[in-house]
Design a protein around this nucleic acid. Structure first.
Lengths: 106, 106
DNA sequence: CAAACGTATAGATGAATTTATATATTTAAA
DNA sequence: TTTAAATATATAAATTCATCTATACGTTTG
């Protein structure tokens, strides 16, 4: 239970950053590299240096929020759907009390 | 849209802390002071100083995650249900893509 | 093989956060 | 009114974080 709480806190903290939120919005929700941006493209679109984006992606990766795969020279990232579902479920239970179960339809 | 993103990041960041997560678990989901702990009781149960808890509650309050009310000498806090619902909805849209709408039943 | 490209890592710096101590404010009780 | 209790605020010290620059590593291409 303690570990779950630490993990949830880590995940929420990782998501709770404007830059990382913007990165997440640019990522596909599956390993579909056709519609994904590589790290440098994300950096350019957000007006930040490439190592900065790489750092934030690492934070998201270590929190288990995103997955990544290297294709040729590029690295593509996408949102881990199972992790996302877990986060939303736990957050609902934590914040919404009993009613969250209804809202989430779980 | 920018403001909404900033607000969401702030709220998620506020929740993404182990101490604040533990505090939230102790708060009722409505202004029901009968089942709530005051600030000092929370501090004692978590083994932290009262000003520390007061500080964290202030963070949660400024993020709009909790509401509070002074009863006699004590302050009682509870989770803001509307804010909680907003957070979960937005997070679902952000992380889950289109499917989140189904998961959330919205 | 060498040059170019994409990414990750390391080091440095300024800013923000956490925690505790001390002080102040408000409220209830004696 | 005086005293005690509960909470909030201010300050300070240590830690942590976001960002940048520079560099290293692996891969592709000429």
């Amino acid at each position: 239970m303690q570990d779950l709480e630490d993990e949830l806190a880590k995940q929420l903290w990782a998501i709770g950053d404007v830059t990382r939120l913007r990165i997440l919005r640019m990522l596909p929700d599956s390993a579909n590299c056709e519609h994904g941006n590589n790290v440098s493209q994300i950096a350019e679109k957000l007006g930040l240096a490439q190592p900065t984006i790489s750092h934030h992606l690492r934070v998201l990766r270590q929190a288990g929020v995103v997955q990544h795969k290297k294709m040729c020279r590029d690295c593509f990232y996408w949102v881990d759907r199972d992790a996302a579902k877990d986060i939303i479920e736990r957050l609902g239970q934590l914040l919404g009390g009993d009613e969250s179960v209804e809202v989430l339809g779980l």
